[in-house]
């Protein structure tokens, strides 16, 4: 395992914490949205946007940028929090989330917000789209990387496994996917609703380079996302064990917070915890 300086890790912790605050504020303001799976993904998305990926906020369509596709599009608050923090749009606008005419649509819309790389929300489609971007990168002899986050519930979609096949078949080693493995979906635990396990074995069997990590440990996250963790000729799947609702005690591991907005009082409590 690599050593990362305390400064690197501290910076990412601060970014992720700010993003978690923004997620809570956003969903609270909208009184609608999906906080649980946004909070579980926050550390990984923070690592992508504030350490791993190359991009230019002043030139969002820069041809050589790395791309991130949030296939589990209902976790849009985590993407919007990262894009705001990175400077793609003013943070003050996060409170327009899910409002009429807002560029912060319920699910990410690439035609409405710079920095969104693919329109997602109908589960199972984003990983195929990311595969298409990776194929295009190979055809164009570009060295950009394509990252794609999927959900564990989303992995019940058959199309995920179509994309698993095609990405391996086309040897898309420029594609790194991450499964936000928080174990819960809207109706209950994966294991009770539709068992997706054993996830790591499945992805290995489909021909992917599989890395299992703690999705809240920045050393493990950075190691897994680093270019050195890739294997030539294979796409990489990072199976990240996470906690749904991570960082807000009353939301952690609670299925109800998949798609529920906190009250004004609960927003205050959550922010107090995050700022403590």
């Amino acid at each position: 395992m690599s050593e990362y300086s305390p400064d690197v890790v501290r910076k990412l912790e601060e970014k992720a914490n700010q993003m978690r605050q923004d997620i809570v504020v956003m969903v609270g303001a909208a009184q609608s949205g999906h906080p649980g799976g946004s909070l579980s993904a926050a550390d990984i998305v923070a690592a992508l946007y504030f350490n791993v990926m190359r991009y230019d906020v002043k030139n969002p369509k820069w041809a050589d940028r790395d791309r991130f596709v949030l296939s589990k599009g209902h976790a849009s608050p985590v993407l919007y929090a990262a894009l705001a923090e990175a400077g793609f749009f003013p943070r003050a606008e996060i409170i327009t989330f899910r409002n009429i005419n807002s560029h912060l649509q319920g699910h990410p819309d690439m035609k409405k917000l710079a920095g969104v790389e693919f329109t997602t929300g109908s589960l199972g489609q984003g990983l195929s789209g990311a595969g298409g971007m990776a194929i295009a990168g190979k055809l164009d002899k570009k060295d950009y990387r394509v990252f794609c986050m999927i959900g564990d519930g989303e992995s019940e979609e058959g199309q995920i496994w179509e994309a698993a096949m095609s990405a391996a078949h086309y040897k898309l080693d420029n594609l790194t996917a991450i499964t936000d493995w928080n174990g819960l979906q809207i109706d209950g635990p994966n294991a009770e609703i539709m068992n997706v396990n054993p996830l790591p074995d499945k992805w290995r069997a489909f021909g992917w380079n599989v890395i299992e990590i703690d999705g809240h440990d920045f050393t493990q996250i950075l190691d897994a996302l680093s270019p050195e963790s890739r294997v030539e000729g294979k796409p990489t799947m990072i199976i990240a064990k996470t906690v749904k609702g991570k960082g807000v005690s009353f939301m952690e591991n609670a299925c109800d917070w998949h798609g529920k907005a906190p009250s004004e009082e609960q927003v205050k409590t959550a922010l107090a915890e995050l700022c403590a």
Partner: peptide, 18 residues
């Protein structure tokens, strides 16, 4: 894309973005 039309359409979407 093999016998996987859903994947084909969304791969195409991703390629079109590029």
């Amino acid at each position: 894309a093999g016998v996987a039309e859903a994947d084909m359409i969304c791969i195409a979407g991703g390629m079109a973005v590029e």
